[in-house]
Amino acid sequence: MASIPNPYLPQIGTVVKVIQETSNIKSLQVVLNDQERMNSFRFEPGQVAQLSVFGVGEATFVINSPPTRTEHLQFSVMRAGEVTARIHQLKEGDPIGVRGPLGNWFPYEEMKGKDILFIGGGIGMAPLRTLLLFMLDNRSDYGKITLLYGARTPDDLCYKEELQQWGQRDDMELILTVDREFPGWEKKVGLVPNVLRELAPSPKDKVAITCGPPIMIRFTLQALAELGFGDEQVVTTLERRMKCGVGLCGRCNIGTKYVCADGPVFTLAQLKELPPEL
């Protein structure tokens, strides 16, 4: 019998670095133990992987290092349940299971030549980081790049070192905001959708990519619509409880679509085709 690739079998990797991003978010940099597999690991920006801590289980995370930087795979993990709590206990040198890449990706080909507006909230910066770095690594393919990123408090912003660097680049614009005033905070204060309204970007030749907590997404989509962004110009990612990650276990469907296999990336136009079950 011809052997079928086993979609449930993770690769074994090693955590090479752990970064404490915020009080409840850590980033893990992982390399696969099999050097050949690591070298041939191909993925697209926005694709996810299932991380395994054996004995506890798996959870889904976006690969937030871009395919243009292949020394490791990075995942950012917010502590929320049993699996993520265990992942937070991992330290450098510990083994971890990696199953992926899975799912679809950002339609970056169709974004070529356009201005790009990233709108992120909290841990939602993770998928945006992938695409942003990918675009910065292919800078000439894209027009103006703007990142609006917000969190509850200054401490809740991820990738602080990179935010510094991005803020200094002259080929992109960075706008940071937190929900309310904090001593020493000199950037914007206010909820992401409100800051977006204030910035009032023109939708002309622009794509908006937004990821973040559901409530932020809801109001951001509203704001974008008010600003005149068409449904095709808005891209977001969905989250759903997942198990198999490959469209077999039935868990993550919204109507006819499986978030794990048909998503996680959807344009607003595609989202509107789905029945309302978010």
């Binding site: 449930y8 004995g55 289980g57 798996e58 198990k243 276990c249 868990r251």
Partner: peptide
């Protein structure tokens, strides 16, 4: 009906990943 769950069952340092029927 084929929907299933995947869970780990640990016994000390070893264990199994099992699939079981689930229900929507």
């Amino acid at each position: 009906c084929y929907c299933f769950n995947i869970t780990d069952e640990a016994a000390g340092l070893e264990g199994e990943r099992v699939r079981t029927w689930d229900s929507c």
